[in-house]
Design a protein around this nucleic acid. Sequence first.
DNA 1: GTCTATATGCGGATAGAC
DNA 2: GTCTATCCGCATATAGAC
Lengths: 222, 222
Amino acid sequence: MAKPLNAQQTKPRILDAAEGLFAEHGFAATSLRDITKEAAVNLAAVNYHFGSKTALLSAVFERRISPINEERLRLLTELEKSASGQPLDLHGVLRAFLLPPFLKMQEWGESGRKFMQLVGRTHSVEASEQMHEAFFKHFEEIIVRFTHAFENILPELPKQNLHLRLQFVVGAMAHTLVWSQKLDQLSKADPNHPISTFEELLQFVAAGMGAKHPPHTLEDIR
Amino acid sequence: MAKPLNAQQTKPRILDAAEGLFAEHGFAATSLRDITKEAAVNLAAVNYHFGSKTALLSAVFERRISPINEERLRLLTELEKSASGQPLDLHGVLRAFLLPPFLKMQEWGESGRKFMQLVGRTHSVEASEQMHEAFFKHFEEIIVRFTHAFENILPELPKQNLHLRLQFVVGAMAHTLVWSQKLDQLSKADPNHPISTFEELLQFVAAGMGAKHPPHTLEDIR
DNA sequence: GTCTATATGCGGATAGAC
DNA sequence: GTCTATCCGCATATAGAC
């Protein structure tokens, strides 16, 4: 009960440090020296345990993305079961997609917050093309399953419009995750009326996804 | 009519090259060697003309952000004038905010597309804290004027919720600008039914901003 | 204003002792 | 598995000739 200070192994220490520094300063701007110093391990440990800086970044993604996407699919499957053939609910499916990252972020505390920042950054084209592959391969099943669900919920919306709108959802979500700390401060600005960033986002994108089609034309707006 | 090849000066060549490379690979991952090679100028030219790599990035921002935000304010002022005291229209104000970056992007062609990618990247925390200041100082007046306009349009929505929703708008916009090339391909996937990415975005965020408040509770959704 | 040459330091990665 | 020492290339930045 008195020596767990050094009990933490080298690998997770490196992962934690890398996660935080990549999130704060970006992949290219973070050196292995920064990481090993922060993790209080030897410089050579990164290459010994992970092989290279790029492989380390992959490992950072691996650790967090899988549980999030598994939870998304679990929630979606649950919805499909309890609907038993009936069309799904727009709010519900959006919630299945959006809730897991917010939940896991809370569950993981500060480390989770940093990771989400890194994810948001990656959405905006950080890192090389190879990194993008390593990142997006984790989302293939998610994209297929959720797109299909939304197509069934909104059969009248042309697919192109639907797919665009899903991109807007992703954009709003990514931005919210990146700035979650500041936005949460905003949510609590009035202590008599604390609101949930997540719930507000869900409300917003549900309205956006359900916006009636076709939209106003330029003429209507002027 | 036969020698304009070398007529272009060094400074704009550097700006163009830097804009493109910062957008594609990020600030930290782009070296002055990459830039001067792409611009076909001497390595020392950057430091001679701009002083440093960071100052060059500032200059890249300077050149493009000002015209966009001036146009935003011009459109908003125009709306206020023609409304002559009446409350403004939600669609109209959102359009005044969102249209200028899309218009300028088109106007500037490939260079504009790259710049918008860079802006989207910066929204997601690229670069250092100093760079952020240099970036966001261009938006102070925009934030004040537009926030005020939205508060008047949606007086029943608590300010915290309103401010959060504006962040969602910014997130969807930034993501759309970053991925504009791919999303435009999506918009034209069906040649019989080409749609406008911008109009679809406007429709989406207008519905989101106008979503009724208070939202469903967690209980309603389950 | 533009060039070459170079100062100076940091980057990822590794060899080899322990 | 962990350490020190080091390779070697590339980074930004500058000095000084033209």
